[in-house]
Design a binder for these strands. Sequence first.
DNA 1: ATTCTAACA
DNA 2: TGTTAGGA
Length: 130
Amino acid sequence: MKGKELRRSRSVLPIGTVMKLTNLTARQIRYYEEQELVMPERNEGNRRLYSLNDIDRLLEVKDYLDDGINMAGIKEIYRERQAKLEAKRSDESKPLSDNELRKILQDEFMNLGGLQTPEQRSLHTHNPLI
DNA sequence: ATTCTAACA
DNA sequence: TGTTAGGA
């Protein structure tokens, strides 16, 4: 259950492939890196190399943006996601780590509405979630 | 052919 | 965000 994560975190994809896989422009992909939403590695020639996890993160960022959440809001989401994860790591390091993770992600969705702009919020009056 | 940084009619 | 110049 460990070699799988290693493969997903192995950076090998050039930005051109990431563009096709995420439908994002190179400009957007580089900008999100500037915002520290993804931190791809670089090869000998200073070319960016992305991992499958980076792809997932990029797609997630795109979804949040589509839902009207701004850069600050997205950063806040990841900031809290990491904070709660660390908290569970210090105390009962192993025990209910799995169920706890579910609750953490659940709480995350509960707070999304507060991070959206008033405009976007009014567009989703029928779907509280998302 | 691809990607990189910097900059803006 | 788009686009473009000038390099690697």
